[in-house]
Each structure stands twice: as structure tokens, then as C-alpha cells.
Design a binder for these strands. Structure first.
Lengths: 160, 160
DNA sequence: CTTAGATATTTTATATTTGAAATATTTTTG
DNA sequence: CAAAAATATTTCAAATATAAAATATCTAAG
């Protein structure tokens, strides 16, 4: 299934290594930033990163999202989303509604409290990301984002 | 602490957006690749991604690592490492030793079985990463890795 | 209509993860 | 030395996460 066969060359390890190195850097950079954002969200707003992610996803969709859409968009399992929404619901930040003719599905959306709560956090979040990525100029950021778009969308779910 | 003050401009949102967009792309790309690797490690070798990460870290250090070094290198909490090492130990892939004069510390290293196990997986892992990042030429990968190195190292622990 | 299959979500069992507190040990200070 | 501070790890409770199984509902074929 791979793009290259190894009949002529048993190992093309020089090419191999650069992509592996890129992957490790990508992973470490992302983890470092994610950890810093997690910490700041916790100390400043007493919210976990997964909760913030869910609220961010829902904020973009005023009509709400299906559980399965959330799961695909956030790239986490169905069961995970169930638990997160359960807890967010019991905190009054999110609600399930049964607007469809389809009783299997439930549309999830932010409550008024949830929207207001998220809007506060979103401002800080934007500032933090700008601070943490300040090594990139806006132009560099655009370029790099465009580069990453290409290959990320290969596995991404449509999410809407 | 931030590089810019907002006395003249209350919001510099155009610059803001490009970095946030970059962050979201970075996050989604990483999650997509991570998810694919997780899936392949599970179906092919019946191993979880966190376990693979621990073994990869230990493989690079034949002398072994302290729990705290592992924790810093992998950017996860101490308690997390304890649990992972507990389970890897009971599977015979890892062992704790008390080589120091310091009885607080325990040096963790791969067993023979652990090394052999990891070597098998590492080959596949390298191929998978190359496949998943095949959109990048080796040169592009080098360049991008260098770019990411700069800002990741701001928060990275030294790890050795 | 009725059953087989498809779809959406929840439940379950287990593993991972965090952050705080507890424990154990070493180092430093008076 | 003895007490205090620092360091390294484990324990603990709660939240997050996965994958598989169970449940509920819808759709389609006959």
C-alpha cells in the first residue's frame, strides 16, 4: 500500500529520517503549546481543554451539532463525546434538543450561559495563541497554515 | 509579559487570526496523524500509542531514564508515567533498577524483550510516518522541521 | 407490514491523563 | 546534628479517551 517499493534499495533511510524528524517536531511543538493552553485555561477559567474544544466547536454552529459531527470534527471517539456533553450539560453550558424527526439523533448546542462563558475565554485564547506563536510573522503563519491544510485534509472528517 | 501592548490598538485582530488559523491547522494535522498511527499500532502490534512513546524514549537511552526525565521528555505528568511504567513492567517490556546512591530515584530501561519488541515496531512506524507525510519532500521536511524547532524549544524540557 | 441491514448514540471495561496530596529521601541551614 | 527546604516518585480522585458491545431507531427490500 505504500508509495515506494524496496526492491532496488532495501532502505531509503535518508529520506525517511527527515520526515520522521518533522513528525517528532510537529508532535512536540503541538504538545508544548497544547500543554501551555491547557494550563492557562485551567488557572484562568477553571476549564479543561477538552471542554474548551467542545465549546469552541459548538460556538461556530449556532444551530447545534449532532454527537457524531462533534466526534468527527474533534477526532475523538463517540463515547468520549457522550461523557463530555453529559458533564457540560449538568453544568448548564450545553443542552441536548430533539428537533429532528429522527429520534436516534440529538442536536447539541450551547446555552446562553455557555455562549457567554465561551466568549470570555475565546478572547484570552486568541491572545495566548498569538503570544505562543509569536515567532511566526502573520505572513509566515498564513503560508505555513496553507502548507498544513493540504495534508491534514487527507484524513480529516468533513465535520459538516 | 506579552510582546505587544494594546494601548493604541484595542485589537490587532488581522494578525491574530493568521496565528490562530495556524494553530488550529497544526492541531488538526497532528491529531489526524496521531490518530492514524495509533490505529495502525493497535491493529498491527496490539500496542497503545502512549506505550509506544515510552518505549521510543527509552530505546534512545540504553543507560535508562529517570521517571522525571521521562515525564519531562514526553511532556506528561509524573503520575501518568508511573502508571505506564507499571503496566509495561508487568508485561516484561521495561524494568526499574536502583543503580544510584539516591534511593528516591529509579532508573527505568527496556528489557531485552522490550528492545526487540520496539525494534520491530519502529520500522513500521518510520514507514507509516513517511507515508503519512509524503506530501512533503525530504527538503521541505527538513526546512519545516527547522522552523518548528525554534519555537518548540521555548517550552520544551531539556530531557537530558 | 416485517425483517434485515444501516445509522446514531450510549454503555461498558479498561487505559490514559491530569493535578493535588502524600510519601520517601536527600540536601541545606542554622 | 536537627529542622526546614528541596527533590523524586507514588498515590489518589476525577476527568478524559479508546474500542467494543449494546441499545434504539430508521430505512429498505420483499
Amino acid at each position: 500500500m505504500t508509495a515506494s517499493h524496496d526492491m532496488l534499495k532495501p532502505h531509503n533511510s535518508s529520506a525517511d529520517k527527515s520526515r520522521v524528524r518533522l513528525w517528532l517536531r510537529l508532535l512536540r511543538a503541538t504538545r508544548a503549546i497544547e500543554g501551555e493552553l491547557r494550563e492557562r485555561l485551567r488557572t484562568t477559567y477553571n476549564v479543561t481543554l477538552p471542554r474548551f474544544d467542545v465549546m469552541a466547536a459548538l460556538y461556530r454552529e449556532p444551530e447545534g451539532m449532532l454527537m457524531s459531527q462533534l466526534s468527527k470534527y474533534l477526532m475523538v471517539s463517540n463515547g468520549n463525546v457522550t461523557g463530555l456533553i453529559d458533564r457540560l450539560t449538568s453544568d448548564g453550558l450545553v443542552q441536548r434538543t430533539l428537533r429532528d424527526g429522527d429520534r436516534r439523533t440529538s442536536v447539541v448546542l450551547l446555552t446562553k450561559a455557555g455562549r457567554e462563558n465561551f466568549e470570555q475565554m475565546a478572547d484570552s485564547h486568541r491572545e495566548w495563541v498569538n503570544e505562543l506563536l509569536s515567532h511566526f510573522s502573520p505572513d509566515e503563519a498564513e503560508t505555513l497554515a496553507e502548507t498544513l491544510k493540504v495534508f491534514a485534509s487527507d484524513w480529516e472528517g468533513e465535520a459538516r
